[in-house]
């Protein structure tokens, strides 16, 4: 359960950005979350609420966009999404696909502030 640590970092980062932009309140926090990030969405939502108490972020909505896993198949020479989340082989030709193009994101992408 490291989502609380992650939520604290997220709140800190959101506050920092808001101040930098001259804002004093945050309405929503937009996050991209890859399915391989190792972070559980529901746990993060829960932790975010607790972590934001007493900050500029208190009361803000955390909007999470989950991103699929995209790998590169060296045989097909193109990007693919594995059939099983954590099984890294090409869904077309079954070649192992160690190269992960996306799915590990844990990125703050935007803030709605005033």
């Amino acid at each position: 359960m490291h989502e609380l640590s992650i939520a604290l970092s997220l709140v800190e980062m959101a506050e920092e950005q808001t101040r930098k932009q001259g804002g004093s309140q945050v309405f929503s926090v937009h996050l991209k979350l890859g399915l391989l990030s190792g972070v559980v969405k529901d746990a993060l939502l829960f932790a975010f609420e607790a972590a934001s108490v007493g900050t500029l972020v208190e009361g803000a909505t955390l909007m999470i966009e989950e991103l699929p896993v995209v790998v590169f198949c060296p045989n097909c020479q193109q990007e693919q999404t594995p059939c099983e989340l954590f099984q890294f082989f090409c869904p077309v030709c079954a070649t192992p696909t160690p190269e992960i193009r996306s799915g590990k994101e844990l990125t703050l992408v935007g803030l709605e502030i005033a």
């Binding site: 997220l10 980062m13 844990l106 990125t107 703050l108 992408v109 709605e112 005033a114």
Partner: peptide, 11 residues
């Protein structure tokens, strides 16, 4: 309210 773009890894 206004939307500001950020692009930062949370960690």
């Amino acid at each position: 309210p206004r939307l500001v773009q950020v692009r930062e890894h949370v960690l």
